[in-house]
Design a binder for these strands. Structure first.
Lengths: 140, 140
DNA sequence: GTAACTGCAAAATATTTGCATCCTT
DNA sequence: AAGGATGCAAATATTTTGCAGTTAC
């Protein structure tokens, strides 16, 4: 089970000042429990924040390891909250399995599912394994 | 071992007319043996073809199942040749393992490596599993 | 000759940067 | 008060669309 810390505390721990946009965007990620695209965030904040602010906020969060990007089959840019085991210096994706629902289009971050071993041809040294599963999710 | 067919034959089999841009772009994919971004293709063709033509050619190839897109950790758009087991109606990615080299930045399509099984939580029904491995390749 | 393909222009979309102002600490 | 964050304007980059001219068959 995860330790739950407040949004303010999360920001503080990452040496980020506590601002409306950052709080709101983190709230969205927590409420959503799925992945979001930049455009999702714009819509869900009712265009309350400048597009540029959202870009910069997401970038900051990625740098701090608060969220991570998800590679998707259609190459859209998605973001999701990192769990505790995400380091804060850029080593994201580690051992994450992502699930994209064909039907409702929600992307899940299945942190409990550990990426499997992959047998690579000789000479290839793996560092990070990203797994993206597409299919039908548990709510569809 | 793969059956090798000529570029002309490949285009003919897909009901595509044989044009300079299509031939040149397919040649690049065959010569490269790795994945390429739109910008790579522009450079390697010496800007001989219009940017729009390259977009349309890539799109046509994806639709026909000649190439497929690759999800990458940094969400850039990469394309690589499909092998025989790629259907021609949009079911790409199946069982592909892709390898992105941190050092030389080349992306390999490791078709001989079959995607492993992934144990999903109850209710999730997988259809396609994309695996992207990042690390150091055999030539670095 | 006809349908398909390409190139150019331009529109639409997405992302980045600079700077003045405002807010957090 | 000082540094960081935001909003606006604008630059840059990416992708899509329309159409006229050209090419493959």
């Amino acid at each position: 089970m995860m330790e739950t810390i407040s949004i303010d505390e999360l920001l503080r721990r990452n040496q980020l000042s506590i601002t409306d946009s950052r709080k709101k965007i983190l709230e969205l990620f927590q409420a959503n429990n799925g992945a979001m695209a930049h455009s999702d965030i714009e819509k869900k904040t009712d265009e309350k924040f400048d597009r540029v602010t959202i870009y910069r906020t997401l970038q900051t969060f990625v740098e701090k390891g608060i969220i991570h990007t998800i590679p998707t089959p259609d190459n859209s840019v998605l973001y999701a909250l990192c769990k505790d085991d995400c380091s804060s210096t850029g080593h994201h994706h580690d051992n994450h399995v992502h699930f994209v629902c064909d039907n409702c289009n929600v992307t899940y971050c299945l942190d409990s599912v550990v990426s499997p071993e992959v047998n690579l041809p000789g000479g290839f040294k793996p560092k990070v394994i990203d797994v993206v599963v597409t299919g039908i999710c548990k709510n569809c």
